[in-house]
Design a protein around this nucleic acid. Structure first.
Lengths: 104, 104
DNA sequence: CTTGACGCCTAGTTTTGCTAGGTATAGCCT
DNA sequence: AGGCTATACCTAGCAAAACTAGGCGTCAAG
């Protein structure tokens, strides 16, 4: 998977995962890998900064927890995050629809 | 259309257009707008540098022509370009399939 | 006690699309 | 004649974002 094809779509993926369940960064990477059959294998250096962006934008919030001696920062969607996800889903449909029209 | 969602996909679009007919840069922008119902409206500053990239990579070639007093640089796919397009189509399918799996 | 999995963080690099200008020709309107 | 729009190309500099390549610390298994 070339790196650039992901650009502009990582936020959508993170929001979609968090819509189903709150999760910490490392877990989000796992979930994306699982759900995509190993196609989406995001670097941690991609995910953590992206989560900060999303938190700064107010679409997710985070809280620390400790499980078996390991610190986790768990993220969950805010109400604005739910709206944002819906909007990004629409944008995704528009985009892929347009590309499909060109490719066909 | 947010700018970043296009990143990594412009080459696919250009190759797809050129697969149907050789075209010059300005015309490619028009064709993308038409085929996508105005969703894809690429800046010239996006398209021209992208075409140079593609030519440098050997997937398109260009030749000058003059029509009604105006210079045009017409691009067409090379054999390698045809292969590259096929590969990028596959990559596109993989990518959108993976995202769909996450979104569903 | 070393290795690997878990878990987080970040400075710097690279790629790439866009902005905002520039140049030039042709045709139409006033 | 002058100005405006469409056609057509070019490019320096900017900005966004994903990745590289490291770092830190905990825990369980060998």
């Amino acid at each position: 998977m070339r790196a650039e094809v992901l650009k502009g779509h990582v936020d959508l993926l993170l929001l979609a995962v968090l819509a189903d369940e709150p999760a910490h960064g490392y877990r989000i990477v796992e979930l994306l890998r699982e759900r995509s059959n190993d196609v989406l294998d995001l670097a941690e250096g991609t995910v953590y900064p992206a989560l900060y962006r999303l938190e700064r934008q107010g679409v997710v919030t985070s809280s620390w927890s400790t499980v078996e001696g390991r610190r986790r920062r768990v993220y969950r969607l805010t109400r604005r995050g739910v709206r944002e996800l819906a909007e990004r889903r629409r944008a995704w449909e528009d985009f892929t629809g347009a590309v499909r029209a060109v490719l066909s």
